[in-house]
Design a protein around this nucleic acid. Structure first.
Lengths: 342, 342
DNA sequence: GTGAAAGCGCTAACAT
DNA sequence: ATGTTAGCGCTTTCAC
C-alpha cells in the first residue's frame, strides 16, 4: 500500500511539530488560534485524515463500540433490533465512533465464544440489545468494559439502560380499548418474565383499575414461552377454548398480535368486527396486515441513538445525565380496534 | 486502562523473541513445531490476544471490511439487506474480520460524505449491497480499495459481484404459472433499469417463448419507479384498468406483490381464486400474508457470506475462484398461486 | 504556546 | 530456525 498523507506531512506544511498538529486535531485550548488556523488549512489542503489504527494504538482507544444481540433477535422477520442497530449507526457516525455488531447464540455457552472484539480490545464499550444470556453479561462484566443495555436489563447489576416506557404503553393500549367501549379485555403475552413484557402487563392492570373494571384471570394468557407469532396463535386458541366472553385483546407485542389475528380469522372471529386487537412495538408499520394493526409505537431508531449518546458520555467520563432513559411511546390507531358494538 | 498481556509477556514466558511469537501466531512454516507448541501454550496460559489496533498499525491492515447500503434499503421493512448483512457478519467472524456497516443516502451527494472508514483507512475492502448512487462508486474507486458488489453492479466497471440467478428465477416463476395452466400471465415491475429486475423480466419472456405463449405487451407494467408495495398497488390498478384478460401475475419482487394483492383484494379479485400471484425474494417468509405468497427464494444470508469469501480471497491476493457468483434460487410454492380454473 | 521524544503493541526485514 | 530492530502513525508527557 502506497504511503498516504500522515501527520508529519501536515506538521511540515504548517511549520509546527506533530504534537501541535495532534493537539489541534483534538482542539486543545492551549494552542493559539493562529496556529490552529494554519494547521487546519494544512490539514484541509492535504486532505489529511488520521489513521484509525494509529490513533487507537497510541491512545488505547479503538474508536469502536460493540453491539451485541442474539442471533434469533436480529434475524427475525420483524425489524425491531435492526432499527435499533440502525439508530446506533447513525448516532455513532455523529460521534465519530464505529459500531461493531456481533450476534451471539441465544443459548450462549461457557467461556468459549466471547466476542472477539473484547478479546482484541477492539471496543471501548458494548451495547447490549434485547435479552441476552446472563452468563454472557457476567463474562463481559469481568472485562470491566462499559455496558449499556437497550430494552433489557440483566438483573442483579446496575448498568445504564435505554428502556421503553412499557407501563405507559400498556396503560395507553388498554385505555384505548376501554375508550372504545370494551370491558372484557384479554391480555396475551409470551415470556412474561421479560421486564418489558411484565411492565406492559402492569400497564394493562393499571388501566383496568383506573376504569374500575375487575381483573379477570380467565382472560389472561401469559404462559407462552416467547412473544412470537406462533405463540400468539397458540395463546389465542387457548383463550378461545376457555369459552369466556371477551371483546378485545391487548397483545404484548405485534408479532404475537399477528398470530392472534390469524387464529381468530381461522376461528371465524374476524378482527375488529368481533374482537378488537391492539399490539405493541409498531414493528409491522407498513407490513400491510389485514386489518392494519392498532398498536403502540416504540421509537426504535431513537433508542439506538440514545444508547450511543449514553455510551459516549460514559466513555468521555462525563457522568452527566441519567443512567436510565425511558423512551416515550405513542398510540397508533389503525383498523384492528373499533367501538364495541355489543 | 491497566496494561494487559502483550506479545512481550508471551515471548518472555516461552523464552523466544517477540518476532517468533508473531510468526507462530501467523502459523509461519519456518518455526519448528516444538517452539510452536511452546509458544502456543504460553499464549494459552496467559490468555493472550493480540490487540487489533497494534496489528493494524504494524501491518497496515485494519482487519475491517466495510459494508455500504443505502439507508432506504437497509431500513425498509423487508429484511432483505439485513439478512445479507447478517451473512457477512457470520462469515467475517469466521475469517477474523470485522464488518463496519454504513448507510449512505440514496441521493448521495458530491465529495462530502465519503464514508469515514475509507478516509481513516479503516477498511481493507468494501462490500456494496444493492443499488447505490454511481457517484459513490466512482469516488470509492479513486481510493483504490477492493470492491465487491452484492445484487447490483455499477455499469461500466468490472468488480467482483455476487448476483442472484435472476433469469432462472424469472423462468422458474413463470413456468410455475404455466404449469398451473395459466397462459395470460402479466408481468409487473418497478425500476426495470435495475439489472436484477431486468433479468427477471428476461426469464419471464424466455418462459413464454419456451411454452410458445405469445408475448402480450398489454400485460406488462414495468414503468413503476421502484419495486415497493405502493407501486405494486398502483401497477395492479393500471393493469386492471386496461381491461385485458389475465389470470396470473408474475411480480418482480415480494414487496410489489403485496401491493398487487392488496389492490386486487380491494378490487374484488381475490387471490388466488381469480388471479394467481407469484413474487420474488421470499422476503416475507413468515410475514403471515393472506394468502401466503408463492415466490422465488433468494439465499440472502448465503449471499452475504459469499461476498465476504470473495473479499477475503481478494485481500489475501489469491486470485482463485470466479469473480462473478450466481446464487441459485428456489421456487417456494405457497397459496397465492393455483390451477387456472377458467 | 510549542517542540522533542518516548512509547502504544505489533509486524517484517534483515541478521545470525 | 530464531533473534534484533526499525518502524507503522499517532498521542502524550515533559521540557523549554
Amino acid at each position: 500500500m502506497k504511503m498516504a498523507i500522515t501527520i508529519k506531512d501536515v506538521a511540515r506544511k504548517a511549520n509546527v511539530s506533530t504534537a501541535t498538529v495532534s493537539l489541534v486535531i483534538h482542539d486543545h485550548r492551549r494552542i493559539s488560534s493562529s496556529t490552529k488556523h494554519r494547521v487546519r488549512s494544512a490539514i484541509e489542503e492535504l486532505n489529511y485524515h488520521p489513521v484509525r489504527s494509529a490513533r487507537g494504538l497510541a491512545s488505547q482507544k479503538s474508536g469502536n463500540i460493540g453491539f451485541i444481540v442474539t442471533d434469533d433477535h436480529f434475524s427475525r422477520s420483524e425489524p425491531f433490533y435492526t432499527q435499533i442497530f440502525l439508530g446506533t449507526e447513525f448516532q455513532a457516525r455523529e460521534s465519530e465512533y464505529y459500531v461493531l455488531l456481533t450476534t451471539v447464540p441465544a443459548d450462549f455457552d461457557e467461556r468459549q465464544n466471547i466476542p472477539r472484539f473484547v478479546l482484541e480490545k477492539n471496543v471501548e464499550g458494548i451495547i447490549i440489545a434485547g435479552k441476552v444470556p446472563h452468563k454472557l453479561v457476567k463474562l463481559l462484566e469481568d472485562f470491566n468494559i462499559p455496558l449499556v443495555f437497550i430494552d433489557y436489563i440483566s438483573s442483579q447489576v446496575t448498568h445504564p439502560v435505554v428502556m421503553i416506557d412499557n407501563v405507559s404503553g400498556g396503560l395507553m393500549a388498554t385505555e384505548h380499548l376501554i375508550d372504545c367501549g370494551h370491558a372484557d379485555i384479554a391480555f396475551i403475552a409470551g415470556d412474561i418474565q421479560h421486564p418489558s413484557i411484565f411492565e406492559r402487563y402492569q400497564g394493562y392492570k393499571m388501566a383496568l383499575e383506573k376504569a374500575q373494571i375487575p381483573f379477570r384471570p380467565e382472560l389472561i394468557v401469559i404462559d407462552e414461552p416467547y412473544p412470537a407469532r406462533k405463540y400468539g396463535y397458540h395463546a389465542a386458541m387457548k383463550l378461545v377454548s376457555r369459552k369466556k366472553r371477551f371483546s378485545a385483546i391487548f397483545t404484548c407485542n405485534d408479532a404475537m398480535a399477528i398470530g392472534v389475528i390469524q387464529y381468530l380469522k381461522e376461528a371465524g372471529m374476524p378482527v375488529p368486527s368481533t374482537v378488537s386487537i391492539i399490539g405493541f412495538d409498531d414493528v409491522e408499520a407498513n407490513l400491510s396486515l389485514d386489518p392494519p394493526l392498532t398498536t403502540v409505537r416504540v421509537p426504535k431508531v431513537d433508542m439506538g441513538m440514545e444508547a450511543i449518546k449514553l455510551m459516549t458520555e460514559i466513555l468521555q467520563k462525563r457522568p452527566t445525565g441519567p443512567r436510565k432513559i425511558l423512551m416515550p411511546v405513542e398510540l397508533v390507531i389503525r383498523k384492528s380496534t373499533c367501538i364495541n358494538s355489543n
